[in-house]
Design a protein around this nucleic acid. Structure first.
Lengths: 313, 313
DNA sequence: GCGCAGCCATGCTTTTAAAGCATGATGAAC
DNA sequence: GTTCATCATGCTTTAAAAGCATGGCTGCGC
């Protein structure tokens, strides 16, 4: 109520007068007539109830109150200007916060180059990365705590309400310890693998693994026996290393896992490890998120990988 | 140019809509018609060039940009309001900074109670105290680094351009070590003191001391021999203690110095140690400074001291 | 499925207030 | 004392915000 008709105009005008220390010159700079300026500044002083300027026939001087108010007015004006710039930057995808989930090994080829390109394109966006297991990613996308995720295509159930955009596909390999019988073969057939014991991921955290398994080995038929379920990549490697069984992994896994294991191509398999962008169908897509996706697509196309791309099956 | 006709009104209106999530209700709360509100918010969005709200026939929702701008708008409005309050507080003497100089012993009775009363009356004023020698006070007042000082009445030369308001006057005493011949007398006459060696202050820093000396002992006549000049109270006490001479000090000095010395009243002396407020004649007197002076006067009147007050000579 | 209610936008008018113009008052400098 | 620059005041013009009436959209309930 008390200052309800103070406007930024008053601050702009007062600031101009305080800088010029002269109404006439300030009015010229503002491109308005001097009496209009005088009146607006008077209105401001009336509103505050304090004299901000001492008028004299040779110009004006600031009172102590005027000095204080000048600082505040400048600060406020700058703040408003910055607010507008921020909002515009946000709209252009160059400001804000971006919550990105990712599955570490599958995103190995895509995320690091995309992050560095994005950092160059939008340095004011704060990217928050979340290294999560498959189903933690889908739930994060659903509840909105993640805006997008770079991950393996989710299973139908957990992927409901999400859209998935495939960027890369990788053929499957069988991982085994050095000296394993299968290592004598050049490639392993689906049927041959069905006879092996399998070191798998935990169903709870990696339902997409079971989607793939179901797809390669449709339920009633024979499939590898699951010897143990692991909660992550490193335990998977260890379990295979100590001979609990073989692993069914994608090409990209090899690069992530290093040389502790031996790999053989799963030869007659039409299924691929599909890696791409997952997003909630109805979630707000921020411009920053959109921009990040564009960069991911570009990185994916221009990538130096030898692996097949979506179109080249 | 780009946001030169954005006004606080736009921020107020947008904030109201963002809070009500409904133009109609927000308009009612603002006591304006709904179309006026719609148009102002539209103007704001046009100005920024970004959609802040998503309209639907059942209300509005904030876009991500809208959320960001809402925070900024609230912040700006609060800032403006605070600025006005600060300026008003400054005008009332309840805000700002107050540079006060003081001479430690003479202000002993006045300053501590005044400071605590002022602190209670104007807690937001930052009081900066400067413990300085006599002539440092006067120069500080002249150059504007001090707004006021509680001190002994300055000499004519150094006090030019300053106004002095006497608050208290104290009779003079002769300070001497225990066992000094003068200590056998009940009081010391001016003539008797003229025969003694005097431990004085440095002329450079304490010209008012010499003003007083000249007043008690007008120049051509006899006066105490100055044995040594000291740069402060503690060295004065020490020099007297070790027998270099006696000191000419005021009643208030005793309380500051404690019981290391013995004091005898200077009996037939019309001169007093005058303590009060010194200010620059043309300097800006801030309301806080004015207020502090009022409190000083009140403290001085209501003080419990046994010393004479200005009127009661 | 259709009408109704709630909500927001648009077109036009009215009202408010800012801007402009002419002039007057003031005090410092010459 | 005159002059000049500077700010204030009175009145008019202009611009913009507010108001009013209305129309269109959409979701909900009958």
């Amino acid at each position: 109520m008390m200052n309800s008709d103070m406007e930024l105009r008053h601050l702009r005008y007062f600031t101009a007068v305080a800088e010029a220390l002269n109404f006439t010159k300030a009015a010229a700079r503002l491109k308005i007539a001097q009496p209009a300026l005088s009146r607006q500044v008077q209105d401001l002083e009336d509103e505050i109830g304090v004299d901000l300027l001492k008028r004299s026939p040779r110009g004006v001087t600031l009172t102590a109150e005027g000095k204080l108010f000048l600082e505040e007015a400048r600060d406020t004006l700058k703040r408003v200007e910055d607010a507008v710039l921020k909002v515009r930057a946000l709209a252009r995808g160059e400001y804000g916060e971006l919550q990105i989930g990712y599955a570490p090994s599958p995103s190995l080829e895509l995320l690091p180059p995309a992050l560095s390109a994005f950092r160059a394109a939008a340095p004011s966006v704060k990217v928050v990365l979340h290294d999560l297991a498959g189903d933690e990613l889908t739930s994060g996308l659903h509840d909105g705590s993640l805006e997008l995720a770079v991950m393996i295509q989710p299973s139908l159930e957990s992927g409901a309400g999400l859209e998935f955009e495939e960027l890369r596909r990788y053929p499957f390999y069988v991982a085994m310890p050095a000296g394993h019988p299968l290592s004598k073969l050049k490639t392993v057939t689906v049927e041959r693998l069905a006879e092996e014991a399998l070191v798998a991921f935990r169903r709870l955290d990696y339902s997409e693994y079971y989607r793939i398994l179901d797809s390669i080995y449709p339920p009633p038929g024979p499939r590898p026996r699951i010897a143990v379920e692991c909660d992550g990549v490193s335990s998977l490697i260890t379990e295979i290393e100590i001979g609990k069984g073989v692993g069914l992994v994608s090409e990209i896994f090899q690069r992530a896992a290093g040389k502790r294991l031996v790999y053989r191509r799963l030869s007659n398999c039409q299924e691929f490890h599909r890696v791409g962008i997952a997003r909630s169908i109805k979630g707000d897509v921020t411009p920053a998120g959109e921009r990040f996706c564009e960069i991911l697509r570009k990185v994916s196309k221009s990538g130096t990988s030898k692996s097949a791309r979506p179109g080249s099956v």
